[in-house]
């Protein structure tokens, strides 16, 4: 009884104290908020600046009397020297090498991610992950010569004279190997983030490890895997050094992977490497190509995004 009265007193005493509930100025909060905002706006601003610069120069290209939008988008030969501006000659090589790269890197990257996250023992993982990271750290020019001097000769033993010294197949394959660690490690993060409770739920239903990994964990991780694929695609489309070294240096509208063909990036690198005068059509054409590259990346991103949203399974 006595204890209770004491408690009551304490409550009374508390209610007499005045609370200060007015807004207070917290300087560190405001400073941090401003810095974070600046960091955010910087990337937006950079993007806008790039698009603006590309658009400005590309406009010069398109307003050239020699160029028409129809020529640009409707023909398949690229030779500004003699008035041919068919962008598809370059786009085709970009698409083909990227598709080959993704055909390699998505299945292998996913398989290795599933192995690492679902199957590998702790020891195995601690051996394999650093190796993958080394693969990710190799400069792309090294990959380029690896394609030209190692992979192409191997392909030659299969295809003989059908394959050219510079070819899209070799460049695409090696590009796939380059992107593999990226897809693998991002996908592994996504798979590992799937709650254990989901796996246990599946196992408790009598699911095998494979059924659990492929039918429960993988779909649940799909949005993260999708992000990995999107970044992978962007890397493939934008990759320059490997294709510049291994896939040839002449625009060629062809979907035969055994042929040489120049990608948009490879072309930009080669042309801008020579001496260009500012107002030449060659110079402004580079910006038109870059704009196209930007669009292709954007469209591929949107497609990937759509596919992911269509198939992902969201867990809370």
């Amino acid at each position: 009884m006595k204890e209770e009265t004491l408690k009551l007193k304490a409550v009374e005493a508390k209610s007499f104290r005045q609370f200060d509930l007015k807004k207070k100025f917290r300087i560190s909060e405001s400073v941090i908020q401003a810095l974070l905002f600046l960091a955010g706006i910087l990337s937006v601003f950079t993007t806008i600046a790039i698009v603006y610069e590309l658009g400005k120069e590309a406009l010069l290209f398109f307003t050239n009397p020699d160029v028409t939008l129809f020529k640009f988008l409707g023909t398949t030969k690229w030779q500004p020297g003699i008035g041919q501006y068919g962008i598809w000659a370059l786009v085709s090589a970009t698409l083909l090498t990227s598709v080959i790269a993704m055909l390699i890197s998505i299945p292998l990257g996913l398989a290795s991610a599933i192995y690492l996250s679902e199957y590998a023992s702790y020891r195995m993982r601690s051996i394999l992950k650093p190796i993958l990271e080394i693969l990710a750290g190799i400069p792309t020019v090294v990959y380029g010569y690896f394609a030209l001097l190692f992979v192409t000769p191997i392909l030659k033993t299969f295809f003989g004279d059908y394959i050219q010294v510079y070819n899209m197949l070799s460049a695409g394959l090696v590009m796939g190997i380059m992107i593999l660690p990226l897809i693998s490690s991002m996908s592994e993060d996504a798979l590992s983030a799937v709650p254990r409770a989901l796996r246990e739920g599946a196992y408790a239903m009598g699911a095998t490890k494979l059924e659990t990994s492929i039918q429960i964990v993988l779909p649940a991780a799909l949005s993260g895997i999708g992000a990995a694929v999107i970044i992978g695609v962007s890397r493939a489309v934008g990759e320059t050094m490997i294709v510049a070294v291994a896939s040839g240096s002449g625009p060629n509208f062809s979907f035969n992977p055994l042929e040489a063909a120049e990608t948009m990036t490879g072309h930009i690198a080669r042309i801008s490497g020579g001496d260009l005068s500012y107002n030449s059509i060659d110079y402004t054409s580079l910006f038109a190509i870059a704009l196209m590259l930007f669009l292709v990346t954007l469209v591929l991103n949107l497609i990937s995004q759509w596919v992911v949203n269509r198939f992902r399974e969201q867990y809370e």
């Binding site: 709650p195 409770a197 989901l198 246990e200 739920g201 599946a202 196992y203 408790a204 239903m205 009598g206 699911a207 095998t208 429960i216 779909p219 649940a220 399974e313 969201q314 867990y315």
Partner: peptide, 20 residues
Amino acid sequence: PVEVRRKIGMVFQKPNPFPK
């Protein structure tokens, strides 16, 4: 063990439906 779990099911502390 897979066969064992087919005969002995389990319901967990926290509901864990599949994201389907």
